[in-house]
Amino acid sequence: MKIKLNGEEKEIADGVTLIMLLEQLKIRPARVVVERNRDIVSRDAYGATLLREGDSLEIVHFVGGG
């Protein structure tokens, strides 16, 4: 199924949870914040968040800035 990840379309398998996706992408959950369809997903809900067709995810973190 297709999702949108940081503005880009991405094909992922059915039944993938948010925590599984982060593992696949080698992203440490402790260092990011995730927005799904404009709602922030709290970190303790990553495991229970099943991704669905058409979901739009934003995965952000802190970078250098002034």
Binding site: G7, I27, V33, I59, H61, F62, G64, G65
Partner: peptide, 19 residues
């Protein structure tokens, strides 16, 4: 101060400022 930006999904170097 820090900025909030999208994670670069394809970047294999996952070093983070907070490290």
């Amino acid at each position: 101060t820090v900025a909030v930006r999208r994670v670069n999904i394809t970047d294999p170097n996952k070093e983070n400022l907070l490290d």
